[in-house]
């Protein structure tokens, strides 16, 4: 029902043909033919003064990458094979850290499970939530700008203040959420104090700030051509069919981007658990001991930097594999404009 109104609004909203609808493929094909010739000639000739200037211009970034990113990363890779403790030890111990991680450390598995749980629920839910809100906010009704601002606001308000706000909202007896639930006769859970409910509480909190993703979807929705919906109408498509066969496919590039970035970000969840639990110890029943929190405790509480580095590299591998899988799998469902082979 809601979709129908959305689409009708769109139909009446005559928009200029979006740029993205232009026959991009042709441009690409042209480019594919013409650029490489010139590029081949110029490739890897540092003596060419134009190239040199180019490198000089990017040198701040290049130096940053080499010394501030790649350097420390390689260092941590080496450290993961040592018993480095920052101040006095750095002996090569082979795969000991990794062995300890997989065989001796129960908390490693707890933290991995907690993190997977969080990723598994928060990524699809926040993505679906953002799409849903974006579709709603794409209607033409008076005051829409105000709604858009309101929904985007949580994405601007971030950080520690928000966590404290949510700790109060989620308070079992006096919190707003349980108070509202009580109006409907539901006795709300203890949220952050009940091991069963701590992770759902955090996921709920994440859902509140889907505004960032929502904005991307909204921008994309505004660019979907009415021609497509008109054609669908002529074929007698209903609102759901139009959403399923037009709106959603048009959104897939953004969904794809959103899933990749939010998967990576979700695996790295740390602040929330560190701030919202006492002493950053992982919360009730260790239910908020996320991978990065465990790693942080190892690195900066007991200075077992070698072990923490091996954890970091394991996480890196997980994220890498998932991202590569996502990229490969994306060919099956991500729709790019103008292409007939997706």
């Amino acid at each position: 029902m809601m979709n129908e109104t959305v689409l009708k609004e769109q139909q009446s909203n005559a928009m200029p043909m979006p740029e993205s609808y232009a026959p991009k493929k042709e441009i690409e094909r042209e480019a594919a033919v013409s650029i490489p010739k010139a590029a081949r000639k110029r490739k890897w000739r540092p003596g060419n003064s134009e190239n040199l200037i180019g490198y000089l211009f990017i040198s701040p970034w290049l130096l940053g990458l080499i010394f501030l990113t790649a350097g420390p990363m390689l260092f941590s890779l080496y450290v993961s094979f040592t018993d480095y403790n920052i101040t006095s030890k750095m002996n090569f111990i082979g795969f000991d850290n990794y062995k300890r991680m997989f065989t001796m450390d129960d908390l490693f598995w707890t933290s991995l499970w907690n993190t997977l749980y969080f990723v598994l629920f928060s990524v699809p839910l926040t993505t679906a939530g953002a799409v849903f809100i974006a579709v709603l906010l794409n209607q033409k009704i008076p005051g829409m700008k105000i709604f858009r601002t309101i929904y985007y606001l949580p994405a601007v308000l971030s950080g520690i203040a928000v966590y404290f706000l949510w700790m109060q909202l989620l308070s079992p007896t006096t919190g707003l959420i349980n108070t509202v639930l009580a109006w409907f006769g539901i006795q709300g859970p203890s949220w952050l104090f009940d091991p069963e409910w701590t992770k759902p509480a955090l996921i709920l909190m994440k859902l509140w700030s889907v505004g960032g993703g929502m904005l991307l979807y909204l921008a994309r929705l505004q660019g979907v051509s009415n021609v497509l919906y008109e054609a669908a109408d002529l074929d007698g498509a209903n609102a759901f069919q139009k959403f399923w066969h037009i709106t959603l496919p048009m959104l897939t590039p953004i969904i794809f981007f959103d899933i990749i970035t939010s998967t990576i970000a979700s695996f790295q969840i740390f602040q929330e658990a560190y701030v919202m639990t006492e002493n950053g110890d992982g919360g009730p029943g260790g239910s908020l001991l996320f991978f990065n929190l465990h790693m942080w405790n190892k690195a900066f509480e007991v200075f077992d930097m070698g072990y923490a580095s091996s954890m970091a590299w394991f996480l890196f591998v997980i994220i890498m594999v998932l991202t590569v899988f996502n990229l490969k799998f994306s060919k099956k469902w991500v729709h790019y404009d103008g292409g007939d082979n997706k």
Binding site: Q168, S171, T173, G175, W191
Partner: peptide, 14 residues
């Protein structure tokens, strides 16, 4: 009871 303990704790946890 767990509920009572959690509820009290939440009130002064911050």
């Amino acid at each position: 009871g767990a509920k009572n303990v959690q509820a009290f704790q939440a009130e002064f946890g911050s």
